[in-house]
Amino acid sequence: MNSNNGQSRSTSPLEHVARQYAPDQEFPLGGYLGAMGVYAGSVTALALTARLTRRQVVAPSPWDVVVTALATHQLSRLVARNPVTSPLRAPFTRFQGTQGPAELKEEVRGEGAKRTIGELLTCPFCTGMWVVTALSGGYVFAPRATRLAASGLAALAGSDFLHYVRAKLN
């Protein structure tokens, strides 16, 4: 050990911080840092591409915000919980059973980047950030197609809500 607060020479500063942050559990702080880097790089690439191609960026209307919110909710739930999308999550998760109508319960497995990807793919809140960024980029580069896709997902969210209401009434 060196004199740097008992930190071993083989321990990286990030591992040291992760142990201090969550001493009683394996916490993928490095994986999260990597995911943040990929996200920031993606947003930067979208912004630079929009600028270089002189895309017009128009402020969304309140209606666009509502439709995008519903679409983001719906697509993030489809990615994170739907049985049909389980092959996307399977390399990073372990099936635990069902969790509500048309939703699965899965446990994240692995460590490092594998664990981080599993957590991103099983968390609708985490997935939602990536979905809304993709939709926002779509509004810049392909607004008509993105509006159509977002409207379809928003309608599906409304349909799912009605299914839940009907199930409660029966």
Rank of each mutant, 00 (worst) to 15 (best):
Y39Q: 02
A22I: 06
E107F: 07
L162Q: 07
R9P: 10
R109L: 04
Q56C: 09
L153V: 09
L156P: 01
V132G: 06
V38N: 01
E107K: 08
V65T: 12
K168D: 15
P87Y: 04
L78K: 10
C123S: 13
A80D: 00
T49H: 09
M1L: 14
R77D: 06
G100F: 09
G128I: 05
E106C: 11
S61Y: 08
T146G: 13
E107A: 12
M129V: 13
G110K: 00
V58H: 01
A35K: 06
M1K: 13
T44A: 15
L121N: 02
G118H: 02
A90P: 01
A150C: 08
F141T: 00
V131M: 07
R81W: 11
S159R: 11
L153T: 12
L48Q: 13
P91S: 05
V84Q: 14
G6F: 08
G128W: 00
A134F: 05
P62T: 04
R166Y: 14
A45D: 00
P23T: 09
T116K: 10
A71T: 00
V84I: 15
V132M: 03
M129N: 10
V131Y: 11
L48G: 05
E103A: 14
R147L: 05
G110H: 00
A59F: 07
T53C: 14
N4I: 15
L135Y: 02
S12R: 04
Q99T: 10
G6N: 06
Q20M: 14
A157L: 06
I117W: 10
E119L: 03
P143W: 04
T72N: 06
Q7Y: 11
P124N: 12
A142K: 09
L153C: 04
G41L: 02
L162D: 04
W130V: 10
G30K: 03
Q56I: 11
L48N: 03
M1R: 13
R115S: 03
V140E: 07
L88A: 09
T68K: 01
N82S: 15
G138L: 00
A154T: 08
A154S: 02
A71G: 08
Q96Y: 10
G6W: 03
T98V: 10
I117L: 02
V165K: 12
A167Y: 11
T122A: 09
S8P: 11
A59N: 10
F27T: 01
L120T: 01
A18L: 00
A145H: 15
Y21T: 07
